[in-house]
């Protein structure tokens, strides 16, 4: 059986705890049945001023930091509705702060501080505004698969869902064969078509992430 991440990667666990202790005194790390949680009060601060606060729980996945941490608001303040970007079924109140692959492509994906000060803070700034009748400050993805296609499409630079799938399928392969059909769909070989673009994308989107994204689109399970 695979060791839980906090045991197999003690260095990352120590770094995670250190980042919390130094930057978030109202959050604390707890390990329960080999699952690592982060619980406490998350404050939205601006220029040293606390604008709002939320009670949160973050659950670290077993394969952290290869998967995105799971955020839940536990104060009962945010409804579990798609419009508030909180999943009600079957995900038990998971906040969907960002399309997971968008986060996993970040070079600082293994920094809990970056996660908290980035997508988590952005999410709660949005919640505080939406609660007061304002729109999402940074926009929002469509729900379900449409939102995934938007995110992956922006990464790849195309918008047609079939083309996005073909690109992700190709980028999942390691190595990529130049005589494969080009994912743009015009019937040419890759070497005679969008090879340069694919090589550029390969640097941006590693095969493991492309594979996850492609799998998410194919499996019917979006989580």
């Amino acid at each position: 059986m695979r060791k839980p991440w906090h045991k197999s990667n003690a260095e990352l666990f120590a770094k995670t705890k250190q980042e919390i202790e130094t930057n978030y005194p109202e959050l604390r790390v707890a390990v329960e049945n080999d699952t690592v949680f982060l619980r406490g009060s998350f404050t939205i601060e601006e220029n040293g001023e606390i604008l709002d606060r939320y009670l949160i729980e973050i659950q670290f996945p077993d394969d952290y930091a290869e998967s995105i941490p799971i955020l839940r608001e536990v104060g009962g303040r945010i409804p579990w509705t798609a419009d508030r970007h909180v999943s009600n079924n079957p995900l038990q109140g998971e906040a969907c702060v960002i399309v997971p692959e968008e986060w996993l492509l970040r070079p600082d994906k293994d920094s809990i501080r970056s996660f908290l000060s980035g997508p988590v803070r952005n999410f709660f700034i949005g919640q505080s505004l939406v609660e007061r009748g304002k729109p999402w400050p940074f926009g929002e993805r469509d729900h379900g698969f449409k939102g995934l296609y938007q995110a992956y499409g922006e990464l790849i630079g195309v918008s047609d869902p079939e083309t996005i799938r073909r690109y992700l399928d190709l980028l999942s392969r390691d190595p990529i064969k130049k005589r494969a059909l080009c994912p743009c769909g015009n019937g040419k070989r890759l070497r005679d078509c969008h090879l340069e673009l694919v090589l550029r994308l390969q640097k941006k989107i590693p095969p493991s992430i492309a594979h996850r994204a492609f799998g998410r689109l194919c499996s019917g399970s979006q989580r």
């Binding site: 601006e46 970007h85 079924n89 980035g118 700034i125 304002k134 999402w136 729900h143 939102g147 995110a151």
Partner: peptide
């Protein structure tokens, strides 16, 4: 109490914005 204006100022100062998503269609 957090005012809308102050929260909007905080949003405007965000360097790396991102969009929330939801798996429930």
């Amino acid at each position: 109490a957090p005012s809308i204006e102050r929260m909007q100022r905080a949003a405007a100062a965000v360097i790396s914005p991102n969009k929330p998503w939801c798996p429930n269609a």
